[in-house]
Nucleic acid binder design. Sequence first.
DNA 1: ATAATAGTGTCTATCAGACATTATCGG
DNA 2: CCGATAATGTCTGATAGACACTATTAT
Lengths: 322, 322
Amino acid sequence: MTNAKDDGQREREFLAEYDPRAFDPIAVTVDVVALTLRAGLLHVLAVERGGPPFAGRWALPGGFVQAGRESLDAAAARELAEETGLDAAVLDRVHLEQLGSYGAPDRDPRMHVVSVAYLAFAPDLPEAQAGSDAAGAAWLPLEAISGAEQPQTTARRPFEQGRRTGIYGGGTGRRPPESSASDRSDADAATNAARSAGRSAEAAASGDEESGFAFDHRLILADGLERARSRIEYTPLATAFLGETFTISELRAVYETVWGAPLHAGNFHRKVLSVPGFVESTGQTASRAGSRGGPRARLYRAGDARLLHPALLRPDREESVR
Amino acid sequence: MTNAKDDGQREREFLAEYDPRAFDPIAVTVDVVALTLRAGLLHVLAVERGGPPFAGRWALPGGFVQAGRESLDAAAARELAEETGLDAAVLDRVHLEQLGSYGAPDRDPRMHVVSVAYLAFAPDLPEAQAGSDAAGAAWLPLEAISGAEQPQTTARRPFEQGRRTGIYGGGTGRRPPESSASDRSDADAATNAARSAGRSAEAAASGDEESGFAFDHRLILADGLERARSRIEYTPLATAFLGETFTISELRAVYETVWGAPLHAGNFHRKVLSVPGFVESTGQTASRAGSRGGPRARLYRAGDARLLHPALLRPDREESVR
DNA sequence: ATAATAGTGTCTATCAGACATTATCGG
DNA sequence: CCGATAATGTCTGATAGACACTATTAT
């Protein structure tokens, strides 16, 4: 199929003449949705923009990809490191994966900017450090931002209201339809990348007034949260929110917080231990019990599975699925 | 938090002075992994490159995003339309979703190019039309390309070897370990976007000799295939490979071809009909039976579900999961 | 002592999958 | 007629979830 004549020659000539500036430029940035658990609440890393556009507004940590010098993954890791002030050792324990790309022409008022978004799961980290071009950085509790990106349940904090029973805490089995599934509920369980790009940015160039987020970062955040909820179903990544060792209860708290729904302690316990490779015992026991008593829990560490089989499926979303 | 003083004024001044060419450029392209079923085999749309780099090699259809004028989704749809020569009516029936972004600095010899990859599911379409900068376009049968991106089963064609029983065709239940899971098997079932970006392109700037694909398009294709296998588990998108109406057997053939494994006809039939919103009856019957006889099958069309609950899980991959 | 928790046992409805059966059609 | 297929029925093992119970700890 290929005329092998002197392709190499022609390619070299072509490249010598190639002018990278011969077209309208599009800038490429990475933005990171970095999630962590602090005091039983999901937090997202945010920076306060130091300069225009959107000076003074919150934004996801991120920045321009260094052309010709780094991959997208490397750029995301670099931005995350700059904004958290963490050394490589700690960053090794942070899970980082690509979320999706956002490229509406008007999502940045300066020019056409394509942002490759990343999703990070981090254990509880020290306070954030403001990077170079940011006025400040902080872990924002998600509840303080908006209610729209919360799960389909009305329960905001898992532990507050009357305890429900059952691993998926339904009591009577399935829960009532509740709010007539907003358009956001079409976010796919497996991947929601399809929704990510090129939507005619509702809140784009003007930022999102309600949340205070710059650009379309509130949309990216919402997609990241939905992805996080889905990821912990099929992967052991919930352990990335915890330390080296942890108890089953701590792991359950991760699920309850990310999903926003209480789970049945007993069933969850048995289920986690039954999934091969999810967690492995350390043989040790927590030095102290919980603040409200109870036996001291055994300690586990993350297993070697990269996928959960069978998966830990979320509470039924039957009605919100159509 | 925002000093509302004269932010608007400062933003306008800033934007007036902003120079989009003040930094090293990165080009942004979209590339489409367009899949279809022809004669019972998965085919991918490919173009033969008309000019350097990689002149004469196969590549995924794609091209540069038009700066400031189109979103990523729009660019992908445009490239797909150009390369297939289809009108908007037919393209409406093609499913298109974002797959992931690839941005290794050396993946294109010309300059740093970030490619946003898309995945398309299309019904059987007429022959492809070569676009402007392509020497030719064709639907390539996947088997002719390489074996590496095939599913974990050794079965290449579902219908060939001795028919296995059971919806997931195990006969004795679980299948033997088979090949010791290559590194590719870590591809996540829910989403494999994490693997997509910035890998230090093994076969990057030199293209992939074995497959004949330019750039890192063979990697993108492999990721697209894995995503396709996963997508039809949790979504009704398998119907996107079929016409307006279809029989359950035709739908089963889609699954068998994409997964590369035979399924049990009876169990599959019952399962599909039991998932709410997957398919809905047209009340009609196929005008003719299959080539080898049998009763005429009833015709269905795609239902209104966007997610399958419960999902149609793939045959057990227990051993390949760790 | 009281209350909450860790961990385990058990029961039931549901479901995946193995297997069987009947009716219908093409060759 | 023969063989393959569509569609349905039935059985079994596994599992999700409801519920109960014991032992252990903090307050």
